[in-house]
């Protein structure tokens, strides 16, 4: 089974791109499965199911969605294996700009959209920086000039990645993405593979359920801002 991980900011077009990608790869709906990792709610499963694509959704709830991803990806692969898929695609809403759900040796696609703001590529962090392929969507509604500056800003942060422009609505560009996706690594298991980027080391009292504000309630790893004297 070939595994592809897709991540990107909320509403950047991940589901749209994955659906167009599957279409362009010309594989039967029964040969591909999707696992959606989200935080609290998601309606993506409806869109996958509508195309006859099997999908499982997991909610990270109180956890960082990327931490949640790591702790569940192995089981996701086992699910895909036993279902007999040729391709397994994971979709994660990258809410935490500090983390990235990418694994060494596994194809990592970051989806980011032209509307996100021209400097966004410079702010997203490892999710963009560590990706093999950066897919840029919503080019149909912004100016050519903005598209060019946006792509330039992406390359500044990730000099190695392929930048591919895909229109999530009409699928323009998806064939090129598909020819890359076909090269995704074949895997039996993920055991002992490593994340590309360490998830934050910090565990503070708020991580473990503290809700009161004040110094005396703060334990573990804390980081303090420095404010200039007025």
């Amino acid at each position: 089974m070939q595994l592809i991980t897709v991540a990107g900011p909320p509403s950047s077009g991940k589901t749209s791109v994955i659906l167009k990608l599957i279409e362009a790869m010309q594989i039967a709906a029964s040969d591909v499965g999707v696992v959606k990792f989200d935080c609290l709610t998601s309606f993506d499963h409806l869109r996958y199911e509508e195309r006859g694509i099997r999908v499982e959704t997991g909610f990270s709830g109180k956890l960082c969605p990327d931490h949640f991803f790591v702790s569940n990806i192995e089981a996701a692969v086992e699910w895909g294996q036993s279902a007999g898929f040729k391709y397994l695609i994971t979709e994660s809403a990258g809410l935490c700009n500090r983390c990235s759900p990418y694994i060494h040796g596994i194809m990592a696609i970051c989806v980011i959209d032209n509307l996100a703001g021209i400097n966004t590529p410079r702010k997203i962090g490892p999710m963009l920086k560590m990706a093999d392929i950066v897919v840029v969507t919503k080019g149909d509604i912004v100016s050519q000039a903005e598209r060019e500056v946006f792509a330039f800003n992406i390359r500044q942060v990730n000099t190695a990645a392929r930048v591919i422009f895909v229109n999530g609505i009409n699928g323009q560009g998806a064939t090129i993405l598909a020819s890359h996706a076909a090269k995704a690594r074949n895997i039996q298991t993920l055991r002992d593979l490593k994340l590309r980027f360490t998830t934050p080391a910090a565990v503070c009292s708020y991580c473990t359920g503290e809700i009161r504000i004040g110094n005396e309630y703060q334990m573990g790893t804390m980081k303090r801002m420095e404010f200039k004297k007025p």
């Binding site: 032209n114 509307l115 703001g117 021209i118 080019g139 149909d140 509604i141 912004v142 100016s143 050519q144 000039a145 903005e146 598209r147 792509a151 392929r162 930048v163 591919i164 422009f165 560009g173 090129i176 020819s179 890359h180």
Partner: peptide
């Protein structure tokens, strides 16, 4: 394929009624 991929986004500039400045 390789050349098409390499040229994507560099060969063509597009302008249409739907495109706006958003920045």
């Amino acid at each position: 394929d390789e050349r098409r991929i390499e040229l994507q986004g560099r060969l063509v500039a597009q302008l249409s009624q739907n495109m706006n400045f958003v920045i």
